[in-house]
Design a protein around this nucleic acid. Sequence first.
DNA 1: CTGAAAGCGCTTACAG
DNA 2: CTGAAAGCGCTTACAG
Lengths: 344, 344
Amino acid sequence: MNGKKRHITIHDIARELGISASTVSRALNNNPRISAATRDMVQKLAAAHGYQPNVMASSLRKGQGNTVGVIVPNINRSFFSNIIWGIEEKLSGAGFNLMICQSNESLEKEKEALQTLMHARVDGIMMSLSMETQDYGHLEKLLNRGIRMVFFDRVPDTLAVDAVVIDDHAAAFRITTALIQKGCHHPAYVGGSGRINVYRQRKSGYLDALKSSGSKVIASHIAETDMTRQGGRKAFREVIQSDPRPDAFICAGDLAAHGVLLEALENNFRIPEDIAVSGFANEEFTPHITPPLTSVDQKGIEMGRQAATLFLEQEATSDGSRIVIEPDVLFRLSTQREINLGTE
Amino acid sequence: MNGKKRHITIHDIARELGISASTVSRALNNNPRISAATRDMVQKLAAAHGYQPNVMASSLRKGQGNTVGVIVPNINRSFFSNIIWGIEEKLSGAGFNLMICQSNESLEKEKEALQTLMHARVDGIMMSLSMETQDYGHLEKLLNRGIRMVFFDRVPDTLAVDAVVIDDHAAAFRITTALIQKGCHHPAYVGGSGRINVYRQRKSGYLDALKSSGSKVIASHIAETDMTRQGGRKAFREVIQSDPRPDAFICAGDLAAHGVLLEALENNFRIPEDIAVSGFANEEFTPHITPPLTSVDQKGIEMGRQAATLFLEQEATSDGSRIVIEPDVLFRLSTQREINLGTE
DNA sequence: CTGAAAGCGCTTACAG
DNA sequence: CTGAAAGCGCTTACAG
């Protein structure tokens, strides 16, 4: 009903109780040197008044706030929003607030976000690199200034930073091996820029699977795209020309895989009979397209939790711990081929 | 290279320049009472030192920070992440940071988020209600305390608050009318709780369209669900039993529409030939399912921008301005029926 | 046009 | 166990 905006302070409580503000502050913070009686009295009155400490004042005094910045390429990809979910869960329990920024896959916006967060004096930064980020100068500068940083998923490989990733190599290896066992003789690969750790890992998983099953690597079966649907379509059109013709497309992302799938269908290939297709990330749409797309659950929530745990454990600056999470491959109809038993 | 964490302050600059901190502060804030020469000198040195004002100190002093809290039901629905995008664009230009919380459609979590934001002393709150929120006591309390609030999409109808919504009634009206014109004689409706403004509006749009085209309202053609895929499936199974049998399902959400569509297909109805289906929100998956789903573009980015503008214009507390945005209906294959010209 | 001083609300050595 | 005092870094009346 009233428009008064003045908040009540420790001085108000002190005055009302006839004690000092120092004592009120200590009582509120459960300082053991305060008598139980005083503590209870103070806490009771504070609660009755709905007292809320002024975080700006305490942050200013303590020289550190209670906010951590999070930068993701895009907030509306289910993988990243799951990560945020996991981070929030862990960190809000520890009394931290989150400030979330999006790089939108642009190096420029990533730098801006970093600026914004430093300006807001966050206690640390948790982030995944934008697709454009290939030079780590802007990150090193912060690390050298002693800023706490934890990376997840897309991480700066040449820097000794704390990071959480999934075993991308293993996921790609498992998919490729499974497809070969199901009778695909020439699986192709569609990936993103080799400058990014996850794409490098996925590609090497594919290559190692070929090698370990005795298959030969065919250069024209490997495409690099921007990982959009359009990119996937384009990659399909190029790679499908190869001789021998590929009978599977292992894609390092769901959007590209969807592009491959659509382009294949529109060119009258049957999926999975003629061509098997798999993606990566288990985006929301993957089980709902026709045919449902085999993909990889990257365990976003768990990744977020682990990254937050790492952040909380971190003493000063990053020291290069790396946590690797085991992903789940979700085999769906798009790769469901009968094993050729040679009985026909 | 060095681990020094001490930031440089206006006093450092003042000392170096042999002037007072007051002057430095004024020069940095472009106070007109400072001579151009002094201003330039200060700003140059500040830039050279990479000076960054301590926002906690200035917030404390000014009695208000520069952060606004945003609460959405869920960060990974494209509609809401677009809204955040729009808000961020407008507000970061005005020097505000965002603190984003998710209610996860739970009243409890919504209250927690409000607590968190008040605790962080945000300058105001922009939010969309959770599905569970039917009582506005917790919001009134804040409004009475003079907190700046702007609502978007799901808004507390009985409160005189600033809000941005789309014209849900018009969108539902247009879809229903179009389907009737295309020869659907008995369009059914699947909506959410009538306690929520958007579902109430969409339902009345459907009802008014029936009325204005002279169709009769059939109670068993109207279902209320939780708006999940499962809810849509269940609603379909119930409503399809009605006599007369419905030949279209106008759904107030994409997930429910998808559930209806899947359940219909699995029961050997053809879509759109036997049954037309439409959704709401234009979620990412809608163009990619089979058949592509007619839906409504709720203009998330624009809604975010408008809400942010309203927030910036807001003098003190909300005064009940309401902005209504015109949505786009995206007709896709799921409602594509030939107009029956009666020539057969 | 510039400066000295007070104060935002808290925390924490220092003293008792 | 409690208090008086200083100070975090800024902004802003007040004075000149």
